[in-house]
C-alpha cells in the first residue's frame, strides 16, 4: 500500500499512529514534519538516500526474568539485524537504558557487543537505569561525557544536525524526566547558528512530550526545548524508555518512541504499573523487540523511518 497524499486529515494521522503501533515494516517519510506512510519490503532501500542510521534502545543488560531471561541474546540479534541492512548505516544511536542496574560488567557487555555492529560509530545517551547511584559517572567514563562531562552533545552529519540530550539526571521526587537550565542554555546556544532549513534529529531517553505522566513517561521541562526547536522545518525526536512505539506530530516536530531490544512494557495505563510485560503469548517475544532504521534523503529534508522487529 502506498500513501501519496500531501495533505493529511487528523483522522488520517490517527490511523497512521495506530498503524505504526501495530506493526513493523512501515516506512515513514518525513516531509516538513508531516509523516507519509507506506509499507516497505524488508531490506528495501529508500531511493537517493544520502545516509542511513539506526536507533536501538533499552537493552537492559542485567535483566534476567520473564519475558526475556537473556537480553544479551536479543541485543545480539538486534545487532545482526543492523548488520543485515542492505546499506551500511553511518552510525547507530542507542537511546539509553543500556543496562538494568548501572553495573560496570553490564556496561562492559554492551560496549563489547556493540563493537560487532557494522556501522561507522555508535552514539550513546544514558537512561535512568544507567545513572543509578553515581549520577552517570560509570556511563560517561565508558561512552563519553559530552559537553563538560554532562552527557549532552551535538554533531553534524551530511547536512543533518543531531542533538543528544540527557533527561535522566537530577530527577526530583514526584517529577518526570528533566533537562535542567544548564542543558537548555547549551541547547539554545547550540541551535543559534543553524539555518531553519537544516533537518534536526534529537535523541533523548525519556519521551520529550507528556506521553503518560502517571508512569513518569514525559519530561517536565521539554516544552522549553521544543520552543527552541519550533523554527526548524523538520525536527525528528527519537526517544526510548517505554519499550514500544508511540508517535506524535506537533507542528514540524515529530516524536517517535522505540521498541526495546530486551522486553516490552504495557501500553499507557493498560496495567497497574509499568514494567516488563510478562504474559506474552508463547513464542511472541520477538514480535515486540526491534530496531529502527532511518534514512536521510538529500535535498528533501526527509527522514524515512522503518521499524524492524526481531521476529
Amino acid at each position: 500500500m502506498n500513501d501519496d497524499h500531501d495533505g493529511m486529515h487528523p483522522g488520517r494521522r490517527r490511523f497512521l499512529e495506530c498503524m505504526a503501533w501495530a506493526g513493523a515494516g512501515t516506512l515513514w517519510l518525513m516531509r516538513g514534519g508531516i509523516a507519509h506512510a507506506g509499507m516497505l519490503a524488508k531490506g528495501a532501500a529508500a531511493p537517493d538516500a544520502t545516509f542511513s542510521f539506526v536507533q536501538i534502545s533499552d537493552s537492559h543488560i542485567g535483566f534476567n526474568k520473564a519475558p526475556n531471561p537473556d537480553p544479551v541474546a536479543s541485543l545480539r540479534q538486534s545487532i545482526a539485524l543492523i548488520n543485515a541492512q542492505p546499506q551500511r548505516p553511518d552510525f547507530v544511536v542507542h537511546t539509553g537504558d543500556l543496562t538494568h542496574l548501572s553495573k560496570p560488567e553490564q556496561f562492559d557487555t554492551v560496549a563489547e557487543l556493540l563493537k560487532e555492529a557494522q556501522a561507522g560509530h555508535v552514539f550513546y545517551i544514558p537512561g535512568e537505569h544507567d545513572v543509578i547511584g553515581d549520577d552517570g559517572k560509570a556511563f560517561f567514563a565508558r561512552f563519553g561525557g559530552g559537553v563538560d562531562g554532562n552527557g549532552w552533545y551535538s554533531f553534524d552529519h551530511h547536512g543533518v544536525h543531531c542533538v543528544a540530550l540527557v533527561n535522566v539526571r537530577h530527577l526530583q521526587g514526584g517529577g518526570l524526566g528533566f533537562l535542567g537550565d544548564e542543558q537548555l542554555a547549551w541547547l539554545k546556544q547550540d541551535l543559534a547558528g543553524i539555518s531553519a532549513s537544516t533537518p534536526i534529529v534529537v535523541i533523548a531517553h525519556m519521551p520529550m512530550w507528556s506521553l503518560y505522566p502517571a508512569w513518569g513517561w514525559g519530561t517536565q521541562d521539554s516544552a522549553q526545548a521544543l520552543t527552541l526547536l519550533q523554527r526548524f522545518g523538520s525536527v525528528t525526536v527519537l526517544n526510548g524508555h517505554i519499550h514500544q512505539i508511540q508517535q506524535k506530530i506537533e507542528g514540524n516536530i515529530t516524536f517517535h518512541t522505540a521498541r526495546s531490544t530486551a522486553y516490552p512494557q504495557p501500553a499507557p495505563g493498560a496495567a497497574a504499573a509499568p514494567g516488563p510485560l510478562q504474559n506474552l503469548p508463547a513464542g511472541k517475544l520477538h514480535d515486540y523487540l526491534g530496531i529502527r532504521d532511518l534514512r536521510h534523503v538529500r535535498g528533501s529534508h526527509t527522514l524515512a523511518l522503518t521499524e524492524r522487529t526481531l521476529a
Partner: peptide, 12 residues
C-alpha cells in the same frame, strides 16, 4: 524525611 525512587521519581 521525604524520599523517592531515582529510577522512577513518580514514586514518592
Amino acid at each position: 524525611y521525604a524520599y523517592f525512587c531515582s529510577v522512577h521519581p513518580f514514586m514518592t
